[in-house]
């Protein structure tokens, strides 16, 4: 395992006014845990502004991320669940309830983490639990390494 995930990287039932605020809060968690530099968070937002809301890859789920050279320091994720879902502008998958910000230091170091995420999140029950999780501990339990399928 080349990444850590614990409740300091999670915030549940957060109130936000728009998608930018949601991405910023997820980004702040990455900064506070020393996974990225501050400019990485701006890059995550700029990428959506430039390339569109394609990061809303699944119903109610956004995965903001930026390039390793945008100030990534370590591999990892932060998770923010929103009290009220917000729109990112995606035609099919809006509104977003769960934001998982992703950082990687190169093209390969996050493969293990991504494959774990794909396994957990492709299970609809897991995602339902994630959307309705009330505490940070619950989110860690759902997305933590001990949860497989």
């Amino acid at each position: 395992m080349n990444y850590i995930f614990n409740k300091s990287l999670v915030k549940t039932n957060v109130k936000v006014n728009d998608w930018i605020q949601a991405v910023k809060i997820a980004g702040d968690l990455l900064i506070q845990n020393d996974l990225v530099e501050a400019r990485f968070v701006d890059a995550m937002i700029d990428i959506v502004k430039e390339k569109g809301p394609y990061i809303v890859i699944s119903k109610n789920l956004a995965i903001p991320h930026a390039r390793p050279e945008d100030g990534a320091k370590k591999v990892g994720i932060s998770v923010v669940t929103l009290e009220k879902p917000v729109k990112f502008g995606h035609k099919q998958n809006d509104p977003v309830k769960v934001v998982i910000a992703l950082t990687s230091i190169d093209e390969k170091s996050h493969i293990e983490l991504i494959s774990h995420l794909a396994r957990v999140l492709s299970n609809k029950q897991n995602f339902e639990r994630l959307k309705t999780a009330d505490t940070e501990e619950e989110v860690v339990k759902i997305l933590g390494k001990e949860v497989q399928n």
């Binding site: 390339k51 394609y54 990061i55 995965i63 493969i111 991504i114 995420l117 794909a118």
Partner: peptide, 10 residues
């Protein structure tokens, strides 16, 4: 995907 590293890997 846009960057070829995150969501396309998922």
């Amino acid at each position: 995907c846009g960057l070829g590293q995150g969501t396309s890997l998922l």
